[in-house]
Nucleic acid binder design. Sequence first.
DNA 1: TTGCATTTTCGCAACATTGCGAATAGACTG
DNA 2: CAGTCTATTCGCAATGTTGCGAAAATGCAA
Lengths: 106, 106
Amino acid sequence: MAKTLKPASDAVEILHRRFYEGKPARLKNLEEARANEEIARKIHELRAAASLSQTQLAKLIGTTASVICRLENADYEGHSLAMLRRIAGALNQRVEIRFIPIRRSA
Amino acid sequence: MAKTLKPASDAVEILHRRFYEGKPARLKNLEEARANEEIARKIHELRAAASLSQTQLAKLIGTTASVICRLENADYEGHSLAMLRRIAGALNQRVEIRFIPIRRSA
DNA sequence: TTGCATTTTCGCAACATTGCGAATAGACTG
DNA sequence: CAGTCTATTCGCAATGTTGCGAAAATGCAA
């Protein structure tokens, strides 16, 4: 029975190939780049809305201006939940995370 | 002029103290703990909904089952955007991040 | 122009997360 | 019971993110 029920693993690998074939690395990278860009912009907007300089926000969360600058750079790809929460907390916000189904365009 | 407009830095530090005094470390940790717990649960739910074992999901995102197990552990505090995106991508979802204002209870 | 606050870039050490194998335990089937 | 799949835990190396100072660039006002 094991053999007839087993191919799950192979099926997973097929799915894996289909997923990455259907969504080329280039496209995936573009999506991520946009997402990071958006996060950078949101941080900048939050800070601006609070009328704080990078140095001021940095002090609020216990770091330096250069770190804030890095986070607000659209090319930065290292955003972490931990940092987003620190910033959100200092600006009286909370970070909400949601998984949203992607409609595969036919 | 500089001197009369300068105290911004001190004001920031006062805000800093007020923020952390009004929201004790214990409470802050509780909130984070809940948030992490929720993420762990969401990952588990997504995986279950896709009828995948930890090993299968691990293969989809190019890692091992022990890593998935770690992520689904409610006590895990190291969730990263990068990993959430990998999982979301493999399960045909995207990660949405929002900053939401906290109403300070009077 | 000078002066000052702010922003940006760079480098590297310190810390945090991930990768991964191996071992253990639980559930289920035959 | 053995056999299989699944889930969990541990340790350590590899990778990634943060901390932080210093210097240079920008913007604005006097």
